[in-house]
Design a protein around this nucleic acid. Structure first.
Length: 497
DNA sequence: AGATTGATTGTTAGC
DNA sequence: GCTAACAATCAATCT
């Protein structure tokens, strides 16, 4: 079912349920998909048949179901069922994946011995350990070559095309990904598209534009669809022109996860289409441990709380606006929106690793302590037992918030002038090191924001000092004194008012 | 339905 | 007419 777009849109050739063999595992399914789409890839510069065959190999494993087997998602601490088929296909896999040394050295070795920062991947890798074992060498290589892999060719050849994504992504990428996430956190948040600041999207000041755009939407609205022939024209949708001041709805846990992950995926495989990325993220999400998911969910919960608050304020402002004496209410109300902005922050301000990193930890980090050491350090903390412990995926039952609370006065991090000093790679490392915490990738953003905290700001400018909970409670009332306000450079309105 | 990201496309405004 | 700026759309997936 290739899309009309043709080769460009490789992802579209994937039939979610077309081939029974496709879905033994989400990641595998991707591989298969690639394989399926092989014909579509013919001629691709970096085509790599061998790897494609990998998927084929796996392909054979799920012959049973005509529909498809849902990837066995096992709780992090349970034995990985997928390992079961490893034996069957391992050989084939390795042989097919030339270049990948079939190394029987297990995953266990990988994480620890390699000093590979355990990350949320711990979960995923653990779950996909069968793949990992095959990829181990690669990962190791990556680890040693540090960030080089990010900019250099590695990602290219390896994940140069979506097709490769699946198989590699499953193992390789997962770790790499994670690390990428670190990068992303460090970078993305600061410049490209800070989660909170989706530049493209309606800026508060764009209200006029919105109207304007609406105006031309009428004019052009019909025309645009023409650009995209076959697709269901969404015209009926008719965007409902949102009030820019209206607080944004909290995004779902999955969306958060997507946000955290996609950059890394993209980083590894720039050519991956949105569809590819989406699938990968989905598969990762599937393999994500319950606890980690919970961590995300907690975040969304917190965000939701904030949202509700903001919404209430917003509505109140509307009411007051309509009321006679808005004169000043307006002025103040103008803020409500501004006030609303923060709500978004909680998402990124979640108590993450950062929360439980002590200043000294950070300092150590800045000074160049190896991620591994940091991880160890962290691991030594009661909080992060899971970090260093083999069953990495084993998450602490303790919610991140709690952890943060226990550990350090987390918050101080953001405002810290030095934070910015943290190099991006470091940020990455930090992430990796810390990732083991339940919040997983999510946490990274905090860290990453760190670096950029001072100058460029991302959503983070705000850098909630503490856990979302803290922020939550503190935000409204708190000292919009210096610190808080300083966090809102973007919100001029705040300053002005 | 709406959210995730980023590329692409189309429209408008300004020169 | 060209360019910049902006907004809409699209992809797959999840909630």
């Amino acid at each position: 079912n290739p899309s009309p777009q043709g080769p460009q849109d490789r992802g579209c050739s994937f039939h979610p349920r077309g081939n029974p063999a496709e879905l033994a595992h989400p990641l595998l399914s991707l591989s298969l998909f690639q394989f399926d789409g092989d014909s579509a890839y013919v001629g691709m510069s970096d085509g790599n048949p061998e790897l494609l065959s990998t998927s084929q190999t796996y392909n054979s494993q799920s012959e049973s179901n005509e529909d498809y087997e849902i990837p066995p998602i096992t709780p992090p601490n349970l034995p990985e069922p997928s390992l079961l088929h490893l034996g069957d296909h391992e050989a084939g896999y390795h042989s097919l994946c030339h270049g990948l040394t079939p190394n029987g050295l297990l995953p266990a070795y990988s994480y620890q011995a390699m000093d590979l920062p355990a990350i949320m991947v711990s979960n995923m890798l653990a779950q996909d350990s069968h793949l990992l074992s095959g990829q181990l060498p690669t990962i190791q290589e990556m680890v040693h070559s540090e960030v080089a892999a990010y900019d250099s060719g590695r990602p290219g050849p390896l994940l140069g095309r979506p097709a490769m994504l699946a198989s590699h992504m499953s193992a390789l990428s997962q770790s790499q990904l994670i690390s990428q996430m670190g990068i992303r956190s460090g970078i993305a948040h600061s410049s490209p598209s800070p989660p909170g600041s989706k530049s493209a999207t309606p800026s508060p000041s764009s209200s006029t534009q919105e109207e304007e755009s609406e105006a031309h939407f009428k004019m052009s609205g019909e025309k645009r669809p023409s650009a995209d022939p076959g697709k269901k024209t969404k015209n009926p949708k008719k965007k409902k022109k949102k009030d820019p001041n209206e607080p944004q709805k909290p995004v779902s846990a999955y969306a958060l996860f997507f946000r955290d992950t996609q950059a890394a995926i993209k980083g590894q495989n720039p050519s991956a289409t949105f569809g590819d990325v989406s699938k990968i993220v989905a598969s990762m999400w599937d393999s994500l441990g319950e606890e980690q998911k919970q961590a995300y969910k907690r975040k969304t919960e917190a965000a939701k709380k904030e949202y509700l608050k903001a919404l209430a304020a917003y509505r109140a402002s509307l009411v007051s606006k309509s009321s006679p004496d808005q004169g000043e209410t307006k002025g103040t109300q103008a803020n409500p929106p501004a006030k609303m902005l923060p709500p978004k922050q909680p998402l990124y301000a979640m108590p993450g690793l950062a929360s439980f990193l002590t200043p000294s930890d950070l300092q150590a980090f800045r000074s160049g302590a190896s991620p591994a050491s940091l991880a160890r350090t962290l691991g030594s903390k009661s909080l992060l037992p899971g970090l260093s412990a083999p069953p990495l995926h084993q998450q602490l039952p303790l919610p991140p918030h709690a952890q943060g609370a226990l550990l350090s006065p987390p918050v101080s991090m953001s405002p810290a002038p030095q934070a910015p000093a943290l190099p991006t790679p470091m940020a990455l490392q930090v992430q990796l090191a810390m990732s083991p915490s339940p919040p997983g990738p999510q946490d990274f953003p905090h860290i990453s924001e760190f670096p950029s905290g001072s100058g460029s700001r991302s959503p983070g400018p705000s850098n909630p000092p503490s856990s979302s909970g803290d922020w939550d409670s503190s935000y409204p009332s708190t000292e919009c004194g210096v610190s808080t306000c300083s966090l809102l450079p973007r919100d001029k309105s705040l300053y002005l008012t």
